[in-house]
Design a protein around this nucleic acid. Sequence first.
DNA 1: GCTGAAATGCTTGGACG
DNA 2: CGTCCAAGCATTTCAGC
Lengths: 150, 150
Amino acid sequence: MTHHGLMIDDIDRRIIRLLREDGRRTVSDIAIEVGLTVAPVKRRIDRLESSGVITGYTAQIDMTKMDSALEAVVELRVAGNLDLEMILAVAEDVPEITEVLALAGDPDAIARIQAENIHDLQRVVNLLRTNGRVTGTKTLVVLDSWSRYG
Amino acid sequence: MTHHGLMIDDIDRRIIRLLREDGRRTVSDIAIEVGLTVAPVKRRIDRLESSGVITGYTAQIDMTKMDSALEAVVELRVAGNLDLEMILAVAEDVPEITEVLALAGDPDAIARIQAENIHDLQRVVNLLRTNGRVTGTKTLVVLDSWSRYG
DNA sequence: GCTGAAATGCTTGGACG
DNA sequence: CGTCCAAGCATTTCAGC
């Protein structure tokens, strides 16, 4: 059996690491770092993007620095097999839900919520609970957070 | 009591949303979107960065598209009061740990791990368990994931 | 796969109303 | 907040090895 994914070499890995550390690094800066010229680095980044390894770029936000911002993690338990689509059917339309993970174990999934206040949070949790196959939730308010690439 | 944080108005919020959707958007593009010129938008972004609302920019990576990549969530239970620094003392030196959340409730914290394989995962979980005040862990392998800004 | 060069456009800083 | 200007870079594309 051969690789089904893309071939990723060490230079690709270094490019990925550099772009994780700073998603706004310029191509020419990266080129210097990895010891190539701009053109091949640009081609590699384009390939990583179009093949879905790099799915996008985003600004990292410290919600605690904003007025009345609240982050929470909601553990979800689901009847029967979990397919992520079921949760996403709700999540995509609720802007407060920023991320969903389907898990092997208990809980079956985790949703992350960024709400303006506790009432917003309650509303979003209720939306998740309303989903027919969600049998239970546990909401955990985030007190502090750290991210490697933040 | 007055606001301790920065004053963030609606335009700031739109800028943040645009940069979350695409962290590489140009200032001039954002200026068009929010109906201002480049100079004030640049000033706002600089202010959001230096005040710590925007903590950085990063590329979003789909680990499943790379060879042998595995993501997991580890729930942590801790003796006594949790201060995040305690966990971070371990996490910062372990590149597989990408994020740590301190929570109000049970579990006391969550760590996210990106490992090459199951042995890497085991090693990292053991590093966390070795911390004197971690009394228990539960490891959940991520089967599928979705992120709004990804 | 790579280098190198040219045209275009963006960014950054400053001065000013 | 806006405009304008100017210098410096980055991006992008197109050649060629």
